[in-house]
Amino acid sequence: MTRHKKRLFGRSGLGVIAIGLPAAMFLLLSLGTPDFFSARNIANVNSQITALLIVALGQLIVALIGGIDISVGSVISLTSVVLASLSASVAVPVALILAALVGLGNGLGVAVFGVHPLIMTLASMIFVQGFALLIMSAAGGTVPPLLIALAKTNIAGLPAGFFWCVSALAIVAVLLHKTAFGLRLFAIGANAQSAALSGVGVRAPRLACYMLCSLAGAIAGVYLTGRIASGDPTMGEPFGLNSVTAIALGGVQLSGGVGSVIGVVLGTITLGLISNGMNLVGVSPFFSAALTGLLLLGAVSLQRRKAIGI
């Protein structure tokens, strides 16, 4: 019975890289750049990270079942233009319903009609982006003041984004690690057929995952729109792929079944620190993008070194 040492992190995908990378980055930046700890910079990093974290949590849910959702960025943009063009009382519900519909479409395509998730969500990414530009072709509009307050007010000295993050984390952590739904996602992601033989329905949870991911996009969209206090039809563009990068850095396996909320936090922080840190040191953003690509490849390879033999 003692032969098996209990795996510290089980199916979380957390390893030395996922934990060490953000820690090392943090250390380097705090030693190397005096501006890093300034209040303005921390606030800046925080607002960038908040939206990415919320989206990445949605992406995590989809990745656990072996899927991917690159349309989530377009959902952010759609949410933004809806919020900036409808009256305050209906804007948020309409945005959430639209997001749920996008997720429903993705889920139906993937889980029922068997379209590859990359193609399905690529198609809806293009469609939803076009739809957002139809509603509002350039940034502008007025955002309900309540949303601005929700995204910008500091409470007890802590920025609003902090509370958005904590709530999102708490909800997703309980969902994944404490509910039967969450356990079944891990099971489906590892081997859908075996899960089905164990009497677990496969279709409905898959569909739900895509809807939850789109909803995460909508919530990130609400936060970002409140934050910049205007609508922007291309606001979400980088988030689709950045969220995938963030979860991959956090040890989530895109083949399904392995990942954790903590990993997503670490991956998101890593990605946020890369762009912010490079910015502070004065490195060209293009160079920092190139470096991010290399880092992603390196980190993922090292996490899977048993599989690739290094």
Binding site: L183, A190, S194, A195, S198, G257
Partner: peptide, 19 residues
């Protein structure tokens, strides 16, 4: 054939679907 899921614990595998 084995239908155990490699990323779940023994307990989770035994009770999967009837947690």
């Amino acid at each position: 054939e084995l239908t155990l899921l490699p990323n779940l614990t023994v307990a989770e595998n035994l009770f999967l679907g009837r947690e």
